[in-house]
Amino acid sequence: MTMGGQGWVAGLIGDEQIASQFGDAAQFASFARFEQALIAGLAEVGRIEQPDASRLISLIESFEPDRKKIALAAVRDGVPIPDYVRQLRAHVSGTGSDLIHHGATSQDLLDTATVEALAQITDLLSERLDTLLDNLAALEARDGANTLQAVTRMQPALDFHVGDRLASWRRPLEQLRDRLPDLRHQTEILQFGGAVGNLQALGADAETVANTVAHKLGLRWPGHGWHSARGPFVHYAGWLCELSGALGKIGQDVALMALRGESDIRLSGGGASSAMPHKHNPIAAERLVALARFNATQISAMHQAQIHEMERSGAAWMLEWMVLPQICEATGAGLAAASGLLQSIQRLGTPS
């Protein structure tokens, strides 16, 4: 699911680079990696001979799923994995082929694909956040000593330096960047629980198989499945929404500064008005505010998606698919827009 969909609105609020991480190509590639890692894990505990495991892993590598058939079947099954596995089993053959998907369930593959998508998105957002902080540092070096009138409770207050306002933009972003290692630790974890969450089909081999799968995928094995405990994704969404809120504050400030006039800010570019040719609307600033407010509404849906009945919920899980990719896209679009906005600032404040 994508944020902007099709048409003119996609360029305003969507992020193709992030949306692609949740696309069919990325997800099916993740499914294949999981199945390959699972075969390696089963070979590790002796349930399949190593030559047979190597052959199966190679066959999985060459598998090209029929995406249209999977899309149709997903409407019936509620998930794409049953038909994916059916097609994969038809593709592979020979000794050990009956162990394809052994001990796993649909949620293991799909949640792990989401985890892998988020890991890629974290890399993208980290790079964009570093760029944004560099842009802020450049503004501070150029205009930080200029004078600006502070505004408290929407009323003129005392004069202070541009650097003081820029610090209120910069510090939350630095704190969010500092929390990235914890974010990765909390979210880059393998989902592996099997049919009812306890890996019972693997018996005493479960821990070794799980650790092997996690190692092959470059993830952490938390020691248990987490089918109905959605904390990792809620934690990730919360970080994203806090980031988009920090960006929204920058956008709100810039929009108000533009209203106050060139003693506060001088911007290049700006959006045109169909009725008033003299206007240069601060579109990038408005986008930051809108995207932040959008994410503020979506985080409540992530908390709704935490509520799973018994060992697994189809409805709560589906809601998560609808919401989490959109939060990711909105945050990514906000970071890109924020860097563009800062680069369009010609001057902040009045030289002392």
Rank of each mutant, 00 (worst) to 15 (best):
S62D: 15
S62A: 15
S62E: 14
S62V: 04
F63I: 07
F63D: 12
F63R: 12
E64I: 12
E64Q: 15
E64K: 14
E64Y: 07
E64T: 15
P65H: 09
R67W: 07
R67N: 03
R67A: 12
K68N: 13
K68G: 11
K68Q: 15
K69S: 14
K69A: 15
K69P: 00
K69T: 10
K69W: 00
I70Y: 01
A71K: 13
A71M: 08
L72H: 08
L72K: 15
L72G: 07
A73K: 11
A73G: 03
A73Q: 14
A73W: 06
A74M: 12
A74L: 07
A74S: 13
A74H: 03
A74Q: 11
V75Q: 08
V75I: 13
V75F: 00
R76I: 14
R76V: 11
R76T: 13
D77K: 06
D77M: 00
D77V: 03
G78N: 10
G78D: 02
V79T: 11
V79E: 11
V79R: 07
P80Q: 03
P80T: 03
P80D: 00
P80R: 03
I81R: 04
I81Y: 10
I81N: 11
P82K: 02
P82F: 05
P82I: 01
P82G: 01
D83H: 08
D83E: 15
Y84T: 07
V85P: 08
R86K: 13
R86L: 06
Q87F: 10
Q87H: 04
Q87M: 04
L88K: 13
L88F: 08
R89N: 09
R89W: 05
R89Y: 08
A90P: 07
A90Q: 15
A90M: 13
H91K: 03
H91C: 09
H91S: 13
H91I: 05
H91R: 09
V92A: 11
T95M: 12
T95C: 05
T95K: 14
T95P: 14
T95A: 13
G96I: 12
S97R: 09
L99K: 15
L99Y: 11
L99N: 06
I100S: 08
I100K: 06
I100R: 06
I100V: 14
H101G: 04
H101S: 06
H102G: 03
H102P: 05
G103F: 05
G103H: 06
G103P: 07
G103C: 07
G103Y: 05
A104W: 04
A104V: 10
T105L: 01
T105Q: 01
T105D: 01
T105M: 05
S106Y: 08
S106L: 05
Q107K: 00
D108I: 01
D108Q: 06
D108E: 02
L109H: 10
L109M: 05
L109R: 00
L109E: 09
L110E: 14
L110F: 11
L110D: 00
L110N: 06
D111Y: 04
T112H: 07
T112K: 03
A113H: 09
A113I: 07
A113V: 09
